[in-house]
Design a protein around this nucleic acid. Structure first.
Lengths: 153, 153
DNA sequence: GCGGTTTGGTTGAGCGCTCAACCAAACCGG
DNA sequence: CCGGTTTGGTTGAGCGCTCAACCAAACCGC
């Protein structure tokens, strides 16, 4: 027998729509701020952040894709742009001749340093300032659960 | 004096990254499913949903933009596509000669009816099934708070 | 080691979105 | 009324992303 659709009840509808509205508005706001103030989309900012957090400020393309939750293709296109901007450079990997290593340049680090305070302030204003400490904790648990559920299936 | 950046503490960082990962993964998954199974992006699906919920299955372009949390430009482009697909049509507004009214066609309603069960199932599987009832409630409050905070400033 | 598979990464076409510019109709103060 | 502003909507250029196809190097079983 064909399984009936488990439709959303009114409460679930409300939850789902509120989540859609909020997350979209949040991401669009932050993306716009970053684009305006630092000339880069949020996805590129994240790439620079991840690179800056490693000891050598470099990462294999595939690890970088994993870390930023991006497809290899997306990262490849992004890396081409970031390289054209002079913010990263790509080097050959000595241990795997297929591999490429993305390296954060000094200019890239400087761009990140310039962008970070404004962006962090935005995250604080638009997200953390609006929520109680308890809600922040709830949001962390919910997000971690969802992330596990989505990436682990 | 220049105000120092209020950096994120480790807990906040963890929350922010988990939220980023989860919301991105969720939206990408649902978008991909909808594209694969119904041949439309999630944004278009939402437009059809909003139209289908009005008594006459029609809405002014500006109201539709508002309802879907979209810019007028985005909606205009989307409407052009949806009209080309035969899922909506645009009519002149009798009371405001600047206005356009987006009308859901029968074909559009049928496309929506075909897409809805699979999509709702996806929302349930990827979101609600992963969370406890209490978490769903928390997520609703958090999202509503954030949405208010973002659109009310 | 040799052939098939898997992994790492790139490429290009196509598409949806943003941003800014634009136009026409409606509104509004003097 | 009449000129300036606001509102409703469209347009086109540019860009980031997806998807599928692709290539080369590495891995693996026999």
């Amino acid at each position: 027998m064909v399984v009936m659709t488990r439709w959303l009840d009114p409460d679930e509808q409300r939850t789902w729509r509120a989540f859609l509205t909020a997350s979209r508005a949040l991401m669009e706001t932050l993306d716009r701020e970053l684009q305006r103030d630092a000339g880069m989309p949020h996805a590129y900012y994240e790439i620079l952040v991840r690179l800056s957090e490693t000891p050598e400020r470099q990462l294999r393309m595939s690890e970088l894709a994993e870390a930023t939750g991006s497809s290899r293709s997306r990262l490849s296109h992004a890396a081409a742009q970031l390289e054209a901007s002079g913010w990263i450079r790509r080097e050959e990997c000595p241990t795997d001749r297929r591999g490429q290593i993305a390296v954060l340049t000094d200019a890239g680090f400087a761009a990140l340093a310039a962008a970070a305070p404004g962006h962090v302030e935005g995250v604080r204003r638009h997200l953390f300032d609006a929520l109680s400490p308890a809600q922040v904790d709830q949001l962390r648990r919910i997000s971690e659960t969802l992330a596990d559920h989505l990436t682990g299936s």
